[in-house]
């Protein structure tokens, strides 16, 4: 009996939903729908922005290690008082890529629940793998998130350190991207990171068949740095 009533109610709701409005005008429905759309979209976007805060990113236990490392870097404290938080480097600004990053970040919740990196030992075991995944994304996107704040075009090489100015000029000349040199800019590096980064560069070059990528140049640069 209760099943019949439940089915009946659902059926009535379904039919009511698709029936022409008997008491509401088209104008009312349009205006109400418009306002409801604004409220829904505003709420959605507001919720999305909440997930971009540092408090949200570091609310999981497993984020404590990388938070501590990040707090020792220039992106956390610096002379200019400008701070780049987690989302500035890990979440794209462009809508479709931002949504993609948010959807892909669901895996972090899964691994938090599974305790994949719940101890310092487990974290160290996975450090290179996690770093490699981020490097792959950054290399593939030409360090898109770095370039939200930094651009070669806006750099004044005359006020940079000589070494930095020379390497930035070399990067422009050879088509390198930020992550090619700045792998450990916000988190500690695992042993064997250069070999792993070389692997990332080769993997992406093979995938894209992009003649513009100067793999040999990047490898040579990484080799020089390793020495």
């Amino acid at each position: 009996m209760s099943d019949t009533n439940k089915r009946g109610l659902l059926r009535r709701l379904w039919e009511g939903f698709w029936s022409p409005a008997a008491v509401l005008s088209t104008g009312f429905l349009l205006i109400a729908g418009f306002i409801a759309g604004i409220v829904f979209w505003g709420g959605f976007n507001w919720s999305l922005e909440l997930t971009n805060t540092e408090e949200f990113c570091t609310s999981c236990h497993t984020m404590e290690t990388n938070l501590g490392e990040y707090r020792e870097t220039i992106h956390y404290n610096n002379h200019s008082g400008v701070r780049a938080i987690c989302s500035d480097c890990h979440v794209p600004h462009e809508w479709q890529y931002k949504m993609k990053a948010k959807i892909m970040a669901v895996k972090d919740v899964y691994h938090e629940l599974r305790g994949t990196i719940s101890t310092p030992e487990k974290y160290e075991e996975r450090r290179l793998e996690m770093a490699s995944a981020v490097w792959t994304k950054m290399k593939a996107s030409d360090s898109r998130e770095c370039r939200n704040c930094h651009a070669f075009e806006y750099m004044d090489f005359t006020i940079q350190e000589t070494r930095a100015a020379q390497n930035h000029q070399k990067a422009i000349d050879t088509g390198m991207t930020c992550i090619d040199c700045h792998q450990g800019i916000a988190h500690d590096l695992a042993p064997g990171y250069l070999e792993e980064y070389n692997h990332v560069v080769q993997k992406l070059a093979a995938k894209e068949h992009d003649a513009d990528i100067d793999v040999a140049g990047i490898k040579a640069f990484l080799g020089t740095k390793a020495e």
Partner: peptide, 19 residues
């Protein structure tokens, strides 16, 4: 694993985006 995630992310982004 990453490629499946990449595909799912691309699908979700397209569904919530202009397409």
């Amino acid at each position: 694993m990453l490629s499946i995630l990449d595909l799912l992310g691309t699908i979700g982004a397209a569904a919530l985006g202009l397409p």
